[in-house]
Design a protein around this nucleic acid. Structure first.
Lengths: 148, 148
DNA sequence: TACTTACTCTACAAAGCCAATATAGTTTCG
DNA sequence: CGAAACTATATTGGCTTTGTAGAGTAAGTA
């Protein structure tokens, strides 16, 4: 299960990506439209900003916007920022490897070998799919054919 | 990330499956060999017993053993018993579906559509791979060819 | 039968995490 | 100036995880 926070983050990014001209959107507007507690969303967006995914402007005409093109932001990147490693076992994480202390030898660990397959399959989806992909696949079928 | 408990459960099942004649093994022996706190392992095995995966005998010549053949126990089944649903979102679980209350309409949810792919990929591995598979793939390559 | 070993079951507790809220700013623009 | 909006940190309540404790039950053995 991914955290509620990660789900909020992804929904917020999708909302920002939908903004036609990339104009900034108020936190309050996103919060209302997406049913996310506003103060919680503030934390999330701030976090995403610190990682360079979104940018903000203060003041009366402020708001948030994507900092990078939507087709360069993968689901995997967002999940790693918000929820931490994607790997199902610490000993399978690429960004935060940690040996399982209770495991005798990693090389012959049956459990690890199976979950390595899970990790590969998961990453294949999450690191390949971007925010832009998620929006594109939302178009009605006929429209999508026109685009392609 | 799967829980420590699930990892213990899988390691214990592998250990039981390795037992040549299916003879019962003491909890204490498994705990020691696998580096698992004994009392914690008791709880786990009891749980697996209640779900019909293992059987036990009391008394001096007691211990635990697999109740079903190792090639009928999938990783997915064990994970669902110990950790609950495998799905990354509650609205994607087959055994414990729950609507995301904060999500406007499920059909058009971009996040859901992407994670549906993750769920499929994950289940493809976990529901197909059994304890027996995990052990078999541990054989040296040459030996495996002989078996095949 | 007494004894030992080991399984059964319930409770509980420390630690950490999650989701959300609170509070106190700072910045920008009209 | 002052309203709107972002920035930042701290705190809270509830829940989950990872065990531990202890009393009880059953089975075999001398």
């Amino acid at each position: 299960m991914i955290s509620q926070k990660a789900k909020y983050a992804l929904r917020a990014l999708v909302a920002l990506a939908r903004q036609p001209t990339g104009q900034p959107v108020f936190i309050g507007d996103i919060a209302e439209a997406q049913n996310i507690p506003k103060k919680f969303l503030e934390q999330i967006l701030l976090d995403l900003k610190h990682h360079g995914l979104v940018a903000s402007r203060r003041g009366k005409a402020g708001g948030y916007g994507l900092f990078r093109p939507a087709d360069t932001i993968s689901f995997g990147e967002v999940l790693r920022i918000i929820d931490g490693p994607i790997a199902p076992l610490p000993c399978l994480s690429k960004i935060a490897y940690r040996r399982c202390e209770d495991c005798a030898e990693e090389a012959s660990c049956e459990v690890r070998r199976v979950f390595a397959q899970v990790a590969d399959a998961t990453r294949a989806v999450l690191d390949r799919t971007t925010i832009a992909d998620a929006i594109a696949s939302n178009l009605p079928i006929r429209l999508r054919e026109l685009v392609a």
